[in-house]
């Protein structure tokens, strides 16, 4: 398979509202309903400004490092476009850290077959710089706990 065929275009607006309150999935359900769970490294970021729009979007490209669940493969590229930028952050939208940082992602495919975060912001767990400590809604969990849940 060529690299281009592996390109998985995940161009979507990961819509999370300002001051939202989501339905938090219990941890076992989050793991169970995710079609893919993986660890990825942020490869690059680009701020996209559209004429007439106050808020830019940020395109984040990632490289998969490790797959915990699903058919995606290590080294597959991923790409997300999210509302806001570091200069104009949109509150409560999933935010990818800087280039070189790592994230743990829970993914599902929408009706069009595009990969999305499972349950919005709950599906993006930043990893602490230099460690595998899960942050965000994963603060009370760990990669080990995910692996244990998957083994059940």
């Amino acid at each position: 398979m060529t690299r281009s065929s592996l390109l998985i275009a995940m161009v979507l607006f990961i819509g999370m509202p300002v001051f939202a309150m989501i339905r938090t999935l219990p941890f076992p359900d989050l793991v169970k309903t995710a079609e893919a769970i993986l660890i990825a490294r942020i490869d690059s970021q680009e701020v996209l400004t559209e004429p007439g729009k106050d808020i830019p979007n940020t395109k984040t490209s990632l490289i998969i490092e490790k797959v915990l669940k699903g058919s995606l493969q290590a080294n597959d590229p991923l790409q997300f476009t999210t509302p806001g930028s570091k200069e104009h952050p949109v509150r409560d939208r999933p935010v990818f850290q800087d280039k070189g940082e790592r994230v743990l992602l829970y993914l599902i495919q929408n009706k069009e077959g595009v990969w999305c975060l499972n349950n919005g912001i709950q599906g993006l767990w930043p990893l602490e710089s230099g460690t595998d400590k899960t942050l965000g809604m994963g603060f009370n969990y760990s990669i080990k706990k995910i692996e244990e849940e998957l083994a059940k």
């Binding site: 509202p17 989501i22 999305c116």
Partner: peptide, 16 residues
């Protein structure tokens, strides 16, 4: 209901 446009996941509430 309140839903995300991209993937349809639901919200309980939106501030504002």
């Amino acid at each position: 209901n309140l839903k995300d446009k991209a993937d349809g996941h639901e919200f309980a509430g939106l501030g504002g």
